[in-house]
């Protein structure tokens, strides 16, 4: 290879402030690095990162760059400075950032600084035969999938949470760990307070049955009706955006849809959800879909295998009762067969 080729940007640089997502990025990064000049570098920002760096190397990184900010100030400004410095130092062909809200801001601003393109929320990434980074991403609320080629250098993409499995550890892998310090401009954004919103212990993406509640429920206490159905089905309770975000009747990690989580349960029951496309993209992969909605023209019915056109206040308790009833009879039969 000529000297010129060595000068050309190559390799993949990954960053996410979220440790899980950072590991997941290594899976995509490893796959792309093969076509992008082999080297996979991961950036970590903060202090006491050695253990995570070693883990990253065991999971496929060739180099872990640990950037230590002068103070413990976290946030987009710090990450952006570190990532920008790492791009200048390592000259990667591609930069992958975790699609958190902070990650998207950092990726977008990095793109503007470098005058390059960025594809957000890539569902899949590959390198085409022209060397461009080609991403699949959702479009028009999620009803469509777009294929987008990013021909910039570096080409930036952000990758959503839990889209890829982190690569397994290989403790024999070797790599380098580099520590750097970063220079930060005086802060423009001052943190006044940070509060954690309540979070549920449950991961709705792991549930085989998901029962989702929407704006068809009139009062907060009525969410219990739908919760009882979820219990009767042995499933997890989730919600549409108005329920989790606007009304805050459920924690944010129970939101299904474009701006929430994507679930793939075997059974999905929508109660009082209209079925706007931004919600539907999060449940489309369910095997069987049941919709309970009083409006027969609600779009959710077109997304359902079984539709009940009716008042959820009547249908949902009846359904929960029928399920409990069925289970009791089955239990009685089992006991009888054992006697």
């Amino acid at each position: 290879m000529s000297g010129r080729a060595e000068d050309a940007p190559s390799g993949v640089l990954t960053f996410s402030e979220n440790p899980d997502l950072a590991s997941e990025l290594l899976a995509v990064g490893r796959a792309l690095a093969a076509g992008a000049g082999a080297k996979l570098t991961t950036l970590m920002v903060g202090s006491a990162l050695r253990e995570r760096a070693e883990d990253a190397i065991a999971r496929g990184a060739d180099e872990a760059v640990l950037a230590c900010p002068p103070d413990t100030r976290p946030g987009a400004e710090t990450y952006l400075a570190a990532l920008h410095a790492a791009v200048l130092a390592h000259r990667p062909a591609m930069v992958l950032v975790g699609s958190t809200r902070t990650g998207v801001e950092v990726a977008a601003r990095l793109g503007q600084r470098l005058r390059v393109g960025c594809v957000t929320d890539a569902l899949s990434l590959e390198i085409d035969d022209t060397g461009a980074l080609v991403a699949t991403r959702r479009m028009y609320g999620g009803q469509f999938l777009a294929r987008v080629a990013n021909r910039s250098t570096p080409a930036i993409a952000t990758v959503p949470w839990k889209r890829f499995e982190p690569p397994p550890r290989d403790d024999d892998r070797r790599g380098t760990i580099t520590e750097t310090t970063i220079q930060l401009p005086p802060p423009r954004l001052r943190t006044v307070a940070i509060q954690q919103r309540p979070r549920s212990a449950l991961d709705i993406r792991k549930a085989a049955v998901v029962v989702a509640v929407g704006r068809g429920v009139k009062r907060q206490e009525d969410v219990a009706l739908v919760e009882a159905l979820a219990e009767a089905l042995g499933g997890a309770l989730a919600g549409s955006r108005p329920i989790t975000d606007d009304l805050r009747w459920l924690p944010p990690d129970r939101k299904i849809g474009l701006s929430g989580l994507t679930v793939r349960p075997s059974l999905y029951v929508a109660c009082g959800i209209s079925g706007q496309i931004e919600h539907v993209v999060g449940m489309r992969a369910a095997r069987t879909v049941v919709a309970i909605n009083s409006d027969p023209t609600a779009p959710i019915h077109a997304e359902a295998d079984y539709s009940v056109v009716g008042d959820l206040y009547a249908i949902v308790p009846a359904l929960a009762a029928a399920l409990r009833d069925g289970r009791q009879r089955q239990a009685a039969a089992t006991i009888e067969s054992l006697q």
Binding site: L145, A146, R147, N150, D305
Partner: peptide, 17 residues
């Protein structure tokens, strides 16, 4: 910086009963 290569809707096959 970007080129849109194509946009398509994945098919849906619900029973709609």
């Amino acid at each position: 910086t970007l080129e849109l290569l194509g946009v398509t809707a994945p098919p849906s096959a619900r029973r709609r009963m």
